[in-house]
Design a binder for these strands. Structure first.
Length: 592
DNA sequence: ATTAGACATAATGACTACGAACGCGTAGT
């Protein structure tokens, strides 16, 4: 657990505490804002303060949403390991009461009443209170509500697990296919965080444009994976899907049905993020306009769509952004992280990519022969392919020793001479050992065309050691790319937590590119890291790390992640042609 | 509690669907 996430939990709890005790809601929101900031920060607050304790308070206050109070509390936590208000809060509100808020259907009002009026402090108490019939007698509680709570008590625990994008996307595409095939459906799309390209997905959101929603709804509710119907209305329904398989987590799916004429407005609303939506709607409020899922309207009256009022725009997202005097904002950017204020940026696209710079063959643990992997690259129109098999320490991956590597490199170069459409680079994915030394001597690396250096073991190392380890690797003059720098696995392994600011600034100075590994189980670097790497002037490589042919098709996951980190075409070395890559890799990378 | 624009105080994150209860809480982006 990092300091940021510890503090995030505390600020969330302070916010909930205010809501539970009936305090000023603006104070609650304000604490939530701090929690969100801590969640999204790429820098460790501990290191911000440590950089110069004297000015720490002022520098914390410079962050939007952090004022005097929050800055003081953060410093107090770093000094003493606790925050007085939090300790006091826990004296009044038992910790288990906060957990009740996680139960679907229970919000702050309900938990407050249950706790204060009936003394319910945890799930067991709640069950007992329901059985005694006391809950039903509370205001706004009835038989149905109580039944719902009881049901949700059972699978509360697994309910909140997020699904990796690699699992969510195929399922979503399957459902989109069914919706498109349904009678009277004009268009069907997925939206939500999946469309924004987050690495994990909380629930699946679908939109179908149709003039006959009832039939579409019946199809959706009748899908074989549907385990439970949560809601079913005129325009919207929600189900819980049995996901099974490797994740074993149930996943909620929401379907919104809209008339074709307002599809764009509905897509914008349902794609979010919430924060992006709020920001746009604020702009509308200032103009005395109104934006909702039925369109962009002049005037401030509520539900203008009900009056048959004609929107300024509704059909496409582009038209709506245009009316708001904004460029089209791609879904990946819609997070309220400055995309509305800054002019449109030229994000990298999958069509720009012409190089795969990290791939494996049968020489180590890949399943493709050299000829086959080249064919894969040529099929995709690539002009450069780096062959980077594992080094000797990766025993399980059949890593190459110096002799096998030399032989392999020779074979690669021989084949390269017969190819004129593509540059085949003789490379390696060399292990970064625990102390940051590389698995091959410099003299061996110097002979190669391309060196990706990656950590594979000791991924639970302390942050300080991890920082030193990666810095040492980045300082090796033969390294071109730092591969999957943290070694995290989405939802399964946290990976290293080095001081990335230091790594990025060194990498930038040394001319070492940082990898976004496109494999959906990795997505490492993550999007926030990409943004921060770019601020330090780093170049980015988006690599599939292909071991089998279908891995080449993972490229879009890497592209999406990189776009979420605001990566432009020019900053992505995989978009460069042969000449530019050759010039870069064989000299002049370093700024002296 | 924080921010903005003022030097104390006002304004602050929008809008809608569903369902059960009855005029609202919860959930969704």
């Amino acid at each position: 657990m990092t300091t940021n996430s510890e503090l995030q939990i505390i600020f969330e709890r302070l916010a909930s505490g205010i809501a539970l005790r009936g305090g000023n809601q603006f104070r609650a929101v304000s604490h939530q804002r701090v929690a969100r900031l801590l969640r999204d920060m790429t820098k460790d607050v501990g290191s911000i303060v440590a950089d110069d304790p004297g000015t720490a308070e002022a520098r914390l206050q410079a962050l939007p949403g952090i004022g005097k109070g929050a800055a003081r509390r953060i410093i107090e936590y770093l000094d003493t390991g606790e925050i007085t208000e939090h300790t006091e809060l826990l004296e009044h509100v038992p910790e288990t009461v906060f957990d009740l808020l996680q139960i679907p259907g229970l919000g702050p009002k309900a938990v407050k009443t249950l706790w204060q009026d009936l003394g319910v402090e945890n799930a067991t108490d709640l069950r007992a209170a329901i059985e005694s019939g006391k809950v039903e007698d509370l205001p706004r509680m009835g038989k149905k509500t109580v039944e719902n709570i009881l049901k949700n008590l059972d699978f509360n625990t697994k309910q909140h697990a997020r699904v990796p994008i690699g699992k969510a996307l195929p399922l979503a595409l399957q459902i989109v296919g069914r919706l498109e095939a349904a009678d009277n459906v004009k268009e069907a799309h997925y939206a939500g965080s999946l469309r924004r390209g987050r690495d994990t997905i909380g629930d699946l959101d679908f939109i179908a444009s149709t003039s006959k929603p009832a039939a579409v709804r019946e199809m959706f509710l009748g899908m074989p994976e549907v385990k439970e119907i949560i809601a079913s209305g005129e325009t919207k329904c929600s189900v819980r899907l049995k996901q099974g398989g490797a994740t074993g987590v149930d996943i909620q799916a929401d379907l919104r049905m809209v008339p074709p004429a307002v599809l764009g407005a509905a897509m914008m609303y349902f794609t979010g993020s919430k924060e992006h939506n709020v920001r746009l709607r604020e702009i509308c409020v200032k103009r005395k306009w109104r934006l909702n899922e039925y369109g962009l309207f002049e005037g401030t009256e509520e539900r203008p769509q009900d009056e048959g009022k004609k929107p300024l725009a509704a059909k496409t997202e582009r038209q709506i952004y245009q009316k708001l005097d904004l460029p089209y904002i791609p879904p990946e950017l819609r997070e309220d992280r400055g995309e509305i204020q800054s002019p449109s940026i030229d994000l990298v696209e999958i069509g720009h990519i012409q190089a795969e710079l990290h791939a494996h063959t049968t020489a180590s643990d890949g399943k493709m022969e050299l000829e086959e992997i080249v064919e894969q690259a040529l099929d995709r129109g690539f002009t450069t392919l780096a062959i980077t098999d594992h080094s000797v320490s990766s025993v399980l991956a059949n890593g190459l020793d110096a002799a096998r590597l030399a032989k392999h490199a020779k074979a690669i170069r021989r084949l390269n001479e017969q190819l004129d459409q593509i540059d085949l680079l003789a490379g390696v994915e060399v292990d970064i050992l625990v102390d940051g030394s590389l698995d091959f001597e410099d003299a061996i690396l110097a002979e190669l065309d391309w060196v990706v250096a990656s950590p594979h073991v000791s991924l639970q190392q302390e942050p300080q050691e991890a920082t030193d380890r990666l810095l040492r690797a980045v300082d090796n003059p033969h390294v071109h790319v730092l591969g999957h720098p943290t070694g995290r696995k989405v939802g399964r392994r946290a990976g290293l937590a080095p001081n990335l600011d230091l790594i990025f600034s060194r990498a930038s100075a040394n001319g070492v590119a940082m990898e976004v590994n496109a494999n959906p189980t990795r997505l490492d670097l993550r999007a926030q890291h990409v943004r921060s790497a770019l601020e330090h002037g780093c170049l980015i490589a988006i690599d599939t790390d292909a071991h089998v042919p279908r891995h080449f098709d993972y490229l879009h996951f890497g592209i999406t992640t990189a776009r979420r980190g605001w990566l432009t075409k020019d900053q992505c070395i995989n978009t460069w042609d042969r000449e530019r890559l050759t010039a870069w890799r064989s000299g002049g990378r370093r700024e002296e």
